[in-house]
Amino acid sequence: MIPLLIFALFAGCRKDDDPGNVDEIPGLGGDVWVEGPVDKWIEDSLTTTYNMTVKYKWEQGELDPTKALVPPHEDKIIPVLSTIRRGWIKPFEEEVGNLFVKRYTPKYFVLVGSSQYNMDGTITLGTAEGGRTIELYTLNDFRVNWMPGYVPSDSPNVKMMFHTIQHEFAHIMNQTVAYSPDFKRISVGKYTGNWVNFTDQEANRRGFPTAYAMSSSDEDFVEMVATMLMEGRAGFDRIVNNITEDGADGTPAATARAVLRQKEAMVVEYYRNSWGINFYNLQTRTRAALVALIK
């Protein structure tokens, strides 16, 4: 039985105005506050080291005014960002160096406490905007054990957050250097706007890593990247090897497995040829970092 409410992890990249170019409205707060310990941590840990900045306080016009959103709790900011640094930034830095991180990772994070509910019944957990900004939602659901290192205690939420970031960063990378058009032809004719009506397992049987990957070739590519990084090589192998039934559309199980392997090879080739990155090394580092965070 397919749930009535389907979680959409991602939304397409928007071309909005620069989030910093919003005039303050007198009497309604605006973007003025006295810097505190959170701001000092962001400056020392992200801005100085990686050329990133973070917006976690509200500004008029910052987000979609038609959505009912709430700001993040301030006590979530450092735990969330510390976790992001350890689980996403560090593996890239260790594999390809600090210069790559400074140059290509998004420069601006906007943090939101709640999810963004959409008219089609989906929930947006993250967006990437123009290769510069990532918006992350649902921060107030993030829980931690208050111990040194801020080790997260809710592994599903942590995995969801990192999947969102990996997905959005993969968008940014292929907006900078396009992936091969041959990828678009692998599942041609099988993409659908009705992806919300499929489970991930049903999508697997049609040669897709997740249901959301069925929405377009661009989403298919970045979902391959995010799934491979988050699950690790052994985990992705399990996804492929567990396809033992034919798809409801008649796709033979052997064909679905072969399609996913073909897409895997093209992701690995893209990272090697376009970025000089050994994807399997990055995958190993990323998976190890995630396991260390959620153990």
Rank of each mutant, 00 (worst) to 15 (best):
L111M: 13
D64V: 04
K57P: 00
A128K: 09
A258T: 10
V34Q: 11
M173N: 08
G12K: 08
N197Q: 14
Q166P: 00
V291D: 15
P19S: 08
T227C: 07
V196K: 14
H167T: 09
L9V: 12
T66G: 03
I2S: 03
A213V: 11
V34I: 14
G207K: 05
Y50P: 06
A11P: 02
K159V: 09
I186E: 00
V151I: 13
I25F: 07
E93Y: 03
G126Q: 07
Y191P: 06
L282S: 03
D218H: 06
V80N: 02
S215R: 09
L4V: 09
D31V: 05
M214P: 03
Q60P: 04
A248K: 15
I25C: 02
K40W: 07
A226P: 09
R272E: 15
E62H: 13
D16G: 05
A68F: 08
H163W: 14
N273T: 15
F92L: 14
Y280S: 09
A170E: 06
T122F: 03
K263I: 07
V151E: 10
D44L: 08
F221E: 01
Y280P: 00
R238S: 15
S155E: 14
M160A: 15
Y50G: 02
G250M: 03
G193L: 06
F109W: 15
G126M: 02
G29C: 05
D39T: 02
R205L: 02
F10R: 13
I172C: 01
L63D: 06
N98Y: 00
M119H: 09
E62N: 11
T53N: 12
W195F: 14
Y270M: 03
M224L: 01
H167K: 06
H73Q: 14
H171T: 06
P152F: 05
Q201T: 14
R238K: 15
Y270V: 00
N204H: 15
I2N: 13
N98A: 09
E24L: 10
P3M: 07
R261V: 03
L111V: 07
F10L: 09
T176H: 14
K55Y: 12
D18H: 12
P209G: 07
Q166L: 13
L63F: 01
L282Q: 06
E202R: 12
K263R: 14
S115A: 13
G61D: 10
D64G: 08
W195M: 01
K107W: 05
W195S: 02
V34L: 11
Q60Y: 14
T127I: 12
Y191S: 07
P72Y: 09
N157D: 10
F208I: 10
I134E: 04
E62M: 15
F7A: 11
K67E: 12
M173V: 11
E129Y: 07
H171E: 02
D120H: 11
L4Q: 11
E219I: 06
K102E: 13
N204I: 01
E95R: 10
I294E: 11
T48Y: 12
D44M: 08
G276F: 02
D16T: 10
G20Y: 04
I239E: 01
D75N: 15
F142G: 03
G20P: 00
R257G: 05
N241I: 00
M228E: 13
T244R: 12
K107M: 03
F10S: 12
W275T: 01
V144L: 01
A258P: 00
T124P: 00
A253L: 01
A11R: 13
